[in-house]
Design a protein around this nucleic acid. Structure first.
Length: 558
RNA sequence: GGGCCUGUAGCUCAGUAGGAUAGAGCGACGGCCUCCUAAGCCGUAGGUCGCCGGUUCGAGUCCGGCCAGGCCCGCCA
């Protein structure tokens, strides 16, 4: 099966070239032929505005240029008709041969249908979630997890080599506060709260008590006799490990698996921060002022220079991050994608500036900012505040609404749009719920095959099926929808935008449901039943490919 | 004060490098199961794309200025 888009582009550029020769015209410098898919019926399957772009160079009206190009177009068995329309569009109507070719192509490729090679095997890394291991994941992390994971899957499907990575902030002030919080609860539970007062900005959640209880169960009161400063590291390390394990389990149950768990501590232990500082200093990109070491990020568009090493000798969080990103690029990634909460957006310019200091294009780092999620329950906003320890955890949500609905809802919107997550809607087994709508298509397809088997209708080799019998409006619309999948993958990969696939899979389910309601697959005359059954097989392939990619279940029965 | 994101139908949102008559879902209204799952389908209504100006053959899309909402602006992490 040929790539229809490039086929039509070839036809067009050949036509323009021969028009240029015949009519003694010029071929405009840098002209690029763009195809689009017209929204409206009657405007063909593909359209181009190239005549409108070229008209000025040829000194004629757009429609006249379009007619000249059309007159020079070569024949193609896949193109049924070409029309000049509107202000000067050239519309291509594809033939029935093309439609049947789509179905055969899908069934031949199966799970590979829709794959692309636009990544050309280059290395991409997606770093996401990376929540501090100081407490359980909440729903905001869930959205980042879904978006990061789906983005990675899409890139992989589009021909990139992809790794998923989680950055563990296992050093620094927050971990110390965590340690103090647990230590304090430990003494509190043992009736000696005065030994270690609860820190002012400590972690107040119940999980801190649980960890303290575990320690009591394992170690009893053995820390009574030791100075609290000496045992702090124990409490901190213990808590970090417990919490990180919970995070890992939450993510696994959310169907996210990381290739690399990268410890910030290891950056320090391997001396990578000093190495980075040397690197910048040697290049004249760092200077001392007020006893601190500063990075000249203003050279690369940041609004002010940033401190790398504080006057007390400690590196800033930013320094760790620069060293971390240097390490990412040192590991050979061509594209590094960071998924951050949108509240970190002010951090983007300095990170981009850092990437340039490392000698990379700022585009080698792409940052996806994940906007906040508002939970709606009973039509009302669920109040949430991390500071007050009042938040809904990822685990609670998974238990309440299920992973399929969560992943679908988190992927449903552009990641930089606020998301209203309607819990009642996500849970409802009703027509309103888009997850069920899409999954219902899967269940119906399975039901057709089950019924076919019980009626003794065999699956026939697509080459031996009269696919030309698929001639109704709904059938053609469904096939055209199937044919869009590879393009949707490319779009989603280029834009790092999983929501494109959610919109597409919804369209596909809609086209299928329309077909299903308008026509019967089984019980028709043999050749028609075979043709429709073959079409349904193709729908199943595409539907499953998408749902697998997004890690949403495709139930056989609902 | 500066910066980033958002502003499209009653609600929630799409909208391809600037293209043709503005797109879905929900909600509202009206139809469709003797039949492979009605968790479905079909139809109707609903819009000065926040406001004003500019760029051009053409602007929801690009530029400038306002307005509204959210977020950020530390030798915190």
């Amino acid at each position: 099966m040929i790539d229809m888009e490039s086929h039509i582009k070839d036809l067009l550029s050949d036509a323009i070239n021969s028009a240029v020769r015949n009519k003694d015209l010029v071929f405009p410098e840098g002209l690029e032929i763009i195809l689009e898919r017209p929204r409206r019926e009657g405007q063909g399957d593909y359209a181009t505005n190239v005549a409108m772009l070229i008209a000025r160079h040829w000194g004629m009206k757009p429609r006249d240029a379009a007619e000249i190009i059309k007159a020079h177009l070569g024949q193609s068995e896949y193109v049924e008709k070409v029309e000049v329309a509107g202000p000067g569009f050239i519309n291509f109507f594809l033939s029935d041969e093309w439609l049947t070719g789509v179905i055969k192509d899908i069934l031949a490729k199966g799970p590979d249908y829709g794959k692309s090679d636009i990544g050309r095997g280059k290395k991409a890394q997606v770093e996401f979630v990376s929540a501090n291991p100081t407490g359980p994941l909440h729903i905001g992390h869930g959205r980042g997890a879904a978006v990061g994971d789906a983005t990675a899957s899409i890139l992989s499907f589009a021909g990139w080599y992809v790794e998923r990575e989680y950055y563990i902030n296992d050093v620094g002030l927050q971990t110390k506060i965590l340690g103090r919080s647990v230590q304090s609860r430990y003494f509190e539970l043992l009736g000696k709260p005065e030994h270690a007062p609860f820190p002012e900005d400590g972690y107040k959640g119940d999980y801190i008590y649980k960890i303290a209880e575990e320690i009591i169960a394992e170690e009893g009161d053995k820390f009574f006799s030791l100075p609290t400063e000496e045992t702090l590291d124990y409490f901190r390390d213990y808590a970090l490990e417990v919490i990180l394990n919970e995070i890992k389990k939450d993510l696994e149950d959310f169907r996210v698996n990381f290739d690399v768990w990268f410890s910030e501590k290891s950056l320090h232990e391997r001396g990578l921060i000093d190495e980075m500082v040397d690197f910048l200093t040697r290049r004249g990109l760092a200077y001392e002022k007020d006893g601190a070491l500063w990075y000249k990020s203003t050279l690369f568009g940041d609004e002010k220079d940033r401190v790398l090493i504080k006057s007390n000798g400690e590196p800033t969080y930013f320094a760790s991050d620069v060293a971390y990103h240097k390490d990412k690029f040192d590991r050979g990634f061509d594209l590094v994608i960071d998924v951050w909460g949108a509240d970190h957006h002010g951090y983007v310019p300095r990170m981009k500036a850092a990437v340039q200091a490392l000698g990379k294009s700022p585009d080698a780092l792409q940052i996806l900012l994940i906007q906040f999620v508002s939970l709606i329950k009973g039509g009302k906003l669920v109040p949430m505040s991390t500071r007050a320890g009042q938040f809904v955890t990822l685990r609670e949500m998974m238990d309440e609404v299920g992973v399929d609905a969560m992943r679908y809802f988190f992927l449903m919107r552009k990641c930089d749009s606020h998301l209203d997550f309607d819990i009642d809607l996500a849970k409802s087994a009703s027509t309103d719920n888009p997850v069920y709508y899409v999954q219902y298509a899967s269940a119906r397809i399975h039901s057709i095959f089950k019924e076919a088997a019980s009626r003794g209708v065999a699956v026939v080799d697509p080459e031996k099926v009269e696919l030309s019998m698929l001639s109704t409006e709904e059938e053609k619309a469904l096939i055209k929808c199937l044919a869009r999948f590879p393009e949707e993958i490319k779009k989603a990969a280029n834009d790092l935008a999983p929501h494109i696939l959610i919109y597409y899979v919804y369209d596909l389910a809609k086209a299928f449901h329309s077909f299903y309601n308008a026509h019967r697959v089984l019980g028709e005359e043999n050749s028609l039943t075979n043709a429709r059954l073959t079409l349904v097989r193709a729908v199943k392939v595409v539907l499953l490919n998408i749902l697998h990619l997004l890690k949403i279940n495709a139930p056989e029965v609902m």
